[in-house]
Simulated assay, not measured.
Amino acid sequence: MKLNKEEIGRRYARALFEYAGEERQYEPILEELLQLEQVYQQIPDLKNIFSDARLSVLKKQKLVDLMQQNVSPIMQRFLQLLFDYQRLDILPEVVTAYQHRFDQMTKTYHAVITSAVELDDQQVTRLQAALATRLGANQVLVETKVDPEIVGGIITQIGDQIVDGSIRTRLQHLNQVLLNN
C-alpha cells in the first residue's frame, strides 16, 4: 500500500518532533520549519524541482546546501535526511504535522472568527479568553474575517468544528420552520 504525502509527512514530523523533544528544541525547530515553509511559498516550483528526475543530484544538493545555511544542526541533518530519501517535496506536509503536534503539546488552538463587522481588539481578546476557558486551552490564536452577508453574530471555526451563531443562519432556520408548518 502506497502512503500519501500527508501520512509520510506525519511520520517524518513525528520523528523530528521526538528528536526535538530529546534536545529540548521543540519551538526553535518549529520556527525553522515555518521559515522553510515560507521559502516553499515564495518559490512554488521548489517541490517540483526536488522531484524532477532531469535535474542532477549534485544540483539538487547545492539547493539543499543553500537551505541548510542559517539553520540549526538538527535541521541541517533533517534536511539532508529528507534529501537522501528523496522526500524534500513533502516538507510542507511535515511542517503542518509538526505544527499540529506542537499545538497539541502546548494546548494551542487556532480559531477563525467571522463577523459582519470588524471586531476591535477588546472584543477579540474577550473571545480569545472565552474560547480558552471553554476549550481548556493555554492559548487561542484568532484570525478574524469580515463577511457582511452573515448580517450579525459570529461564526467560529476551530479545526473542523464550526459554531454558527450568525443572524443569517438563524433567519434561514426560522424560514424553514415557517415553510414546514
Rank of each mutant, 00 (worst) to 15 (best):
L119N: 01
D120S: 09
V94P: 07
R126L: 15
H110D: 11
A132T: 01
D103C: 04
Y109P: 04
S166E: 04
N138H: 10
P148W: 03
V151R: 03
H100C: 10
Y85P: 11
M105A: 12
L82V: 10
H100T: 15
E149A: 15
D84I: 13
A97G: 12
I90V: 15
L135K: 05
A130D: 14
T108I: 08
Y98L: 04
Q139I: 07
V112P: 05
I167N: 04
D160G: 02
V124F: 01
F83M: 04
T108L: 03
T106A: 14
D147M: 02
E149V: 10
D89W: 06
Q161H: 11
D103N: 14
L88F: 11
Q128I: 01
G159S: 03
V95A: 07
E149P: 09
R134V: 08
H110L: 14
Q122A: 12
L88Y: 07
A130K: 08
T108H: 05
F83T: 08
F102I: 11
V94Y: 04
I150S: 02
A137V: 09
I167F: 08
Q123A: 08
Q139K: 13
D120M: 07
D120G: 01
I113V: 14
V163F: 14
D147C: 05
E143Y: 06
D164C: 08
I113H: 01
K107R: 14
E149G: 10
L82Y: 12
D164P: 13
Q80N: 10
L135E: 01
Q86L: 07
G153H: 01
F102H: 12
S166K: 03
V95M: 02
L119C: 01
I155A: 12
D120K: 05
L88A: 05
D160K: 06
V117L: 12
A129Q: 12
K145S: 01
V117Y: 12
T133E: 07
Q104V: 07
Q123D: 00
V140F: 04
V163G: 02
V94W: 03
A129I: 12
A130M: 05
L131K: 01
Q128Y: 02
E149Q: 11
K145L: 06
E93F: 15
T106Y: 13
I162H: 07
Q104H: 10
G159W: 07
I113D: 00
P92G: 13
I155F: 11
L119Q: 04
A137D: 01
N138G: 07
P92Y: 08
D120E: 09
F83L: 10
Q104N: 15
